[in-house]
Write a protein that binds this DNA or RNA. Structure first.
Lengths: 195, 195
DNA sequence: TTATAATACGGAGGAAGCCTCCACTTGACA
DNA sequence: TGTCAAGTGGAGGCTTCCTCCGTATTATAA
């Protein structure tokens, strides 16, 4: 729903040592449980596994999305980094293909994350910012090269990732369909039906 | 989640008069509240507005999805009917475009319906069956005409409708983007980038 | 009609989650 | 070592879900 909370910009006053430790306990408990039971796992269960009170969890991560963004932070950073690194070797279209496939695969890491990935990705963590910036960059590059339709927006990327991730959730066996679905979209956004 | 419940096939033993009346009271209360407050409205509130007990509501509609499918029944029937009727006047691609746009618009009728439309549409009501059959028909027609890629499935239609509807919910201003997003998808599933 | 059996009703109540609030504890720093 | 801002935790209030079962109503057979 909302997404204006969970500001994780670096104007933060630096955590006290114990708080920092708890933050990390919460993050690894959350990571475990999201993997085991999906993004909808009761937050009380996360707090319990982390060995902290529920109040502590909520103070640090005011929303579930903030916690999801935090546990995804490193994956997002590395995804953006990888994308930037391989960029010179690929055509604009192939770079976008790789980006979308990885983002979709990533979103399928936690069951039930799909529907909220659009919100999560706006949480303002370094990872979220990096991945968003990289997406914009790839899109712009593709459009400047004249191979991507001008009316495509970055939001379209997110919609596609959402659709694909939902598909993955409904049919676990279809991991291989990520490529197929990205393909359809790419075929759609190309200026000419190249492929 | 599950979707095996809520069988609405006509092997039902016919409702008693009072039960039939209550069923209708529930349906109109639900329709009102879904419109006012979205598909996530508390079912107890629906029961209250209908003037029946919560137990009665659950006996008639074992899941929220069953209730959603029931309130959508007539819209689905008419959507399928309309699609069938205009079919001869349109190319296969345009018929699919119209179908997807209307289904997406329809799904945006109730706020928060998007995420579960895939489940709702499998509930087995006459409307659900009609709309599913029509989608399969359109897809097959397009593929036989050679204008739609062979590797596209009906599930792809549902994923796209889901993603578009989620997009609508996240960004109220983008009602007009339905056409754009359907367009990208269609451009993608065409054998050649026709358009 | 009336009796009776199958249907249906309704809402109390237990379970689960969410999130806030605040009395108490602890770390940082002078 | 004293001070106090920062941090803690979990009780408790709230919402929603859904089941269960004693009571009530309808259909039908006699």
């Amino acid at each position: 729903m909302t997404s204006e909370r969970g500001k994780k910009l670096s104007d933060e006053p630096a955590l006290r040592a114990d708080a920092q430790k708890n933050r990390e306990l919460i993050l690894s408990a959350a990571e475990e449980l999201f993997l085991e039971k999906g993004a909808g796992v009761p937050l009380e269960e996360v707090a319990k596994r982390a060995g902290v009170g529920i109040g502590t969890l909520y103070r640090r991560f005011p929303t579930r999305e903030a916690l999801l963004a935090a546990t995804s932070n490193e994956r997002f950073l590395s995804l953006a980094e990888t994308s930037r690194a391989r960029d010179p070797d690929l055509t604009p279209g192939d770079a976008i293909r790789a980006y979308l496939e990885e983002l979709a695969r990533n979103t399928s890491t936690y069951q039930s994350l799909a529907a909220s990935i659009g919100t999560v990705i706006q949480c303002g963590t370094p990872g979220c910012n990096a991945i968003t910036a990289e997406g914009h960059r790839l899109l712009q590059r593709g459009q400047e090269a004249g191979t991507i339709r001008r009316d495509v927006t970055y939001e379209d990327f997110i919609y596609v990732v959402t659709a694909i991730s939902i598909a993955m959730e409904n049919d676990r066996s279809s991991k291989s369909r990520i490529g197929h679905l990205v393909d359809l979209f790419l075929n759609g956004i190309n200026v000419k039906g190249s492929e």
